[in-house]
Design a binder for these strands. Structure first.
Length: 548
RNA sequence: GCCCCCGUAGCUCAGCGGAUAGAGCGAGUCACUUCUAAUGACUGGGUCGCAGGUUCGAGUCCUGCCGGGGGCACCA
């Protein structure tokens, strides 16, 4: 019996009790069952009696006692206890609980998928780092969390598009091109330009493609160098993200917004909505009509559109492309953008509370140093991956909520011990794979038998209950946009599995011992755990090794 | 000054308005002739920043204060 089945069975019993006159109150559309922290509190528990006590006008424990009698009659429930102020603690019979092992194995990679976010058309924008240099560790938190969020939303039935906005327009790109050109000439970095060894690497790539570069007049040389350096840098970013297991559906160019006239059109459209005015030679958006604390300039007095104007055009592009929900994942240093982005949405006639979701991630602290651009430490993501590895970096960032400040120690992440939760979870998966392989060699085959009533050990009941939680964990993590919940769940599941492994042997002890249904049924449970660990790790973009 | 996030064990952090607030690390003890000991069992460890409030019930929600981080451009 899955928790969903249990929940609807309880609800049916409530309706029955209400119809029989046990009490009078509105029955909630969904009865929440949860897994009690304490094993003595049964397999599942519900606080529905506490919730209904007030509207029913009955003491919670009296109501709970009546409900307990009805729940006991449900097929698959062996015991219902009233505890504390009126909790109902439910124990399932082993056979009913154990059926889950088979249904998980049969569902395979689909187990955990759900339709809780069905009907949502979501644009998920993250990283969007300037293509004027390599990605560094300041970008990695949202890289890891954003990609996991994409996977979670897709697994929960949303139509999600992951998007990277490339700031390939404006003066920063000019400074970038001038820096590359200066390096090619052997000159020092120009004022306000980009220092760094990677500029030299780019200069080399560009001069290889255009050996005549240095013979061109300066203006022409910049025009030639700029797109070549840009393409090389963007390719490097894309390779790094691929290495990090992060995927984007759309790479969106800011320059194309300018070239295609979308920025001017955006200003015109906002003007039609009545939120644009002219002052001091500039064109302004009256963002103070909404949530902003001051109005923002769209077109500067010199006629140049601001970055904010491009943001507005970009928002309208997302709207026009049919995304009802636009999620922005930004670093804490972009906090000031929230109100103006929401103002854009409101000015465009959207509802900021519904159509836009701006999330701020706190900066990560590595070895005591802030991982931000402004702090000046430029540890490149590529180097971080070479040092620590994709799995450990992704996992250690994915296991904390984005809004919590975070301190990491590089050497801790390299440890292949329990200091490092990623190895704990991966090790559990490798163990399941090993048990499965060896059981196969011993002639234990799932298809030869399955008797869920044999899964009677307490460690099996808790393992099954944990496995049954997975789809709801995925749905909740997707709903809250909090991938860390999946990581925490996997650590819990790995722990339950290790305890079970210590208590319950899957394979026969030796060649003399006969293979029985107990071995086969436990293999189902082992393989079900393996499947859930693999499905969960995949949601985090972390590998599930067969051996370690 | 105004706005946002955070404050939970020695450390790093979980915690859906519910039961005795948890995990890992660190400290100590134990368990491999037995499917991977990268594991498991056990022992210590807490005024959930402070003060009020809402509630049958608050680490969780509201207000104020204290402490830490971040943000407040005709920059990109």
């Amino acid at each position: 019996m899955t928790p969903e089945e249990l929940s609807s069975a309880i609800r049916a019993a409530l309706l029955e009790a209400s119809a029989a006159g046990d009490f009078t109150a509105d029955i909630p559309a969904e009865v929440r069952v949860e897994r009690p922290r304490n094993r003595d509190h049964g397999d599942w528990s519900t606080n529905v009696a506490l919730q209904l006590a007030k509207p029913a006008g009955m003491p919670p424990r009296d109501l709970a006692t009546r409900l307990a009698e009805r729940l006991t009659a449900i097929d698959g429930i062996t015991q219902v206890d009233v505890a504390g102020p009126g909790f109902l603690n439910i124990t399932l019979d082993a056979a009913s609980a154990g059926e889950l092992a088979r249904s998980i194995v049969e569902s395979g990679t689909a187990y955990g998928k759900n339709d809780s976010e069905a009907g949502h058309t979501i644009n998920l924008e993250f990283i969007s780092a300037n293509p004027t240099g390599p990605l560094h560790i300041g970008h990695t938190r949202w890289a890891a969390l954003g990609d996991s969020m994409r996977r979670l939303l897709a697994a929960s039935g949303a139509d999600v598009t992951a998007e990277y906005y490339i700031n390939d327009a404006g003066t920063q790109m000019d400074k970038f091109a001038l820096s590359v050109l200066a390096s090619a000439k052997g000159e020092p970095t120009p004022e306000g330009g980009y220092p760094g060894a990677y500029i030299g690497d780019l200069a080399e790539i560009v001069t290889q493609q255009r050996p005549d570069l240095l013979e061109l007049p300066d203006d022409e040389a910049v025009a030639v160098a700029r797109p070549l350096a840009y393409e090389a840098q963007l390719a490097e970013i894309q390779q790094t993200l691929e290495r990090f297991g992060v995927f984007f559906d759309v790479w969106f160019s800011e320059q194309e917004l300018h070239d295609g006239g979308a920025v001017e059109q955006a200003v015109a459209r906002l003007r039609e909505q009545g939120h644009v005015y002219d002052k001091d030679g500039a064109v302004w958006l009256r963002t103070t009509d909404f949530t902003d604390d001051k109005d923002r300039v769209l077109i500067r007095a010199d006629g140049e559109p601001t970055y904010f104007a491009a943001d507005a055009a970009y928002y309208l592009s997302k709207k026009d492309r049919g995304f009802t929900e636009k999620i922005y994942l930004l670093g804490a240093d972009h906090h000031g953008y929230i109100n103006r982005l929401k103002a854009i949405a409101a000015a465009a006639g959207d509802d900021p509370d519904v159509n836009i979701d701006v999330r701020i991630g706190q900066l990560v602290n590595l070895n005591g140093a802030k991982l931000s651009k402004r702090a000046g430490n430029i540890i490149e993501l590529n180097d971080l991956l070479s040092w620590i590895g994709t799995d450990a970096v992704r996992y250690s960032l994915a296991r904390y909520p984005a809004d919590s400040p975070l301190s990491l120690e590089g050497e801790e992440l390299r440890k292949q011990t329990n200091d490092n939760p990623v190895f704990y979870v991966q090790y559990a998966h490798a163990r399941t794979a090993n048990v499965s392989r060896l059981a196969g060699e011993d002639g234990v085959r799932r298809e030869d038998g399955f008797d869920p009533a044999l899964l009677a050990d307490p460690t099996e009941a808790t393992l099954l209950a944990t496995l049954g939680d997975f789809p709801r964990v995925v749905a909740q993590a997707a709903h809250l946009r909090e991938p860390h919940r999946v990581a925490r769940y996997l650590e819990d599941l790995a722990g339950r599995y290790h305890k079970w492994y210590d208590t319950c042997r899957v394979r026969p002890m030796n060649a003399e011992e006969e293979v029985t249904d107990l071995h086969r049924t436990r293999l189902w449970l082992n393989d079900a755990t393996r499947q859930v660990l693999a499905n969960g790790l995949d949601l985090l973009g972390v590998s599930a090794p067969e051996r370690m």
